[in-house]
Design a protein around this nucleic acid. Sequence first.
DNA 1: TAGTGGTCTAGACCACCTG
DNA 2: AGGTGGTCTAGACCACTAA
Lengths: 242, 242
Amino acid sequence: MQPLYYCIAEDMIKRIKGGELKPGDMLPSESQLCTEYSTSKMTVRQGLGLLARAGYLRSVPGKGSFVEHPRYDMLAMHFDEMDIVGGYPQGVKLLQATIVDPKPQVQDMLGLTENDKVIVLKRLLYTEKQLAAYDIKYMPYIKGKPLIEKEIQYIPFAKMVAKHGELFSVKNEVTIYAAAADQGVAAMLETSPGSPLLVIEQKLLSAEQKPIGWGKTYCLSDCMQLHAVSAQFIQDKKLLNL
Amino acid sequence: MQPLYYCIAEDMIKRIKGGELKPGDMLPSESQLCTEYSTSKMTVRQGLGLLARAGYLRSVPGKGSFVEHPRYDMLAMHFDEMDIVGGYPQGVKLLQATIVDPKPQVQDMLGLTENDKVIVLKRLLYTEKQLAAYDIKYMPYIKGKPLIEKEIQYIPFAKMVAKHGELFSVKNEVTIYAAAADQGVAAMLETSPGSPLLVIEQKLLSAEQKPIGWGKTYCLSDCMQLHAVSAQFIQDKKLLNL
DNA sequence: TAGTGGTCTAGACCACCTG
DNA sequence: AGGTGGTCTAGACCACTAA
C-alpha cells in the first residue's frame, strides 16, 4: 500500500499527462484537495511537493499552483574519466606525475601568479588493452601538502583535487568538443595527426569560485561515446517511480 | 528571516562541509534535532528532506540518517539543437521535410515494419551566417495526423514529436561522439571529408519505451561545444541556495 | 475580505532495526 | 523493548493576491 501523499501526486500526474490539466492551468487548491482526499494539508503538500520538484508544477504564494510542461532539453550525464578503462588498475598507464612551472595557458586557467607551481598528471587510458584516451590534469601545488599516493593514478579528478587542496570542489565545469589530433597528441595516441578526437575539458572550482583543477581528456573517436538522458526521466524515476 | 527548517538544513551542511560530520556518520536523530532546535518533527523532517534530495544524506528506516559524499561525476547539460543558431528563424535552412520509406537502419532504430513510413527532416543550422551543423531527424508517420506546420523547422525535436505523435516523450537518450566527416555530410557542411565532427545522436522514447523519434546532428568542430556542469552544483543552488 | 500557498505545532500510529 | 525514520492529523498563524 503506497502512502496517500504519493497517490495524490500520481493522480495529478495522470490528470496532467492525460490532458485534463494543461500547462498554465491552476490545480485544485490545497484546501480543495484536502476535502477531495479527506486528508490534512501537510499530506496534500507532501504530494504536491513531489510534483513541484519534478518540474510538473509551480506554486505561487497567494495565487495557486500551476501546471508546467516538464523540460526535455535538460540532460543528465555521467562522466568519470576512470570509467573509460575496463576495470581498475589495469587500464591506466601513468606517464608523469610531477611538480612543474606551468605554461602561461595553464597559469591563466588556474589563476596563478609567476611563482606558483602546479602538479601535472599525464596518463594513458585503455579499454581492454586498447589505447583509448590521453589524459592530462593540472592542480595548483600547495607547499607542505602531501603530494602523491600510490593510487593517485586511479582516483577521479574531483577526488584527487579534494585530497590535495580544498576539501570539496563545488563545481565541475565540463566542455565537450571535437578536434583534429595535433602532432603531439597523435603520437601519444598512436594515431595520425588530423584524426578526429573527442575532447573533454574539465575545470574544477572551489566554493570561492577559485579554479582548483583543470585538464583535458583526448579520446580516440571510435573508443569513446558519452551518453546522456533527459534529466526529467531521472527525476520521474527518482521522485515519482514512474 | 529564513524559515526554521531551512536553518536546520544549513546548519547540517555546515557540519558536513566543515568536517564535523564525515561520510558514513549518523546524523542526530530526528527526535534529538527536535529538542536541539525546540521544534516539532515535521519541521525537522522538512529540513532533512532538503539535504536528502541534494544527496548529502540518506535516511534508512529503523536505523538513522547518514552522511553521504555528494557526487561530482554526475553532470547536467542543456542541449537543444535550435540553440546552435543565433536567434530564431534566421539560423535554420530547411532542406527537406517529407514522408518517405525508411532505410533499414532507420526502420530498425524506430522499430518499424515494412510498410510503415517516416517523416524525415533535414536542416542546416547556422551561427550568424556561418554554417555550423547538419541535422537530420526521423519520426514515424502516423496516418491522418496533420503533418507539417509553418514553424516546424524551428521547434525542438521533443516538441516536434509531441505535436505529431505521442503527447509526451518521456525519455530523450543522447549519444555524443566524434567522427570524421564522410563524403555526403562533408558536402552538406561545405568541408572536406575526414574533417572532425561532433555528432549528437538523439533518440526519443514514449512512456511504453517505444521509439518515437531518432536523429543526428553533425556539428563542425570549431563551431560547436557542449557545456555541462556538475549536477550537484545545480541542486545546491536550486534546493539550498548555496 | 476571502482565498491562496508557506510555515509550524504537538501530538499519533506504523514498520523497521537492534540489543 | 526502545530507538529510528515514515506517514498522518487537525488545527494554527503568516504573507501574499485579488476583488
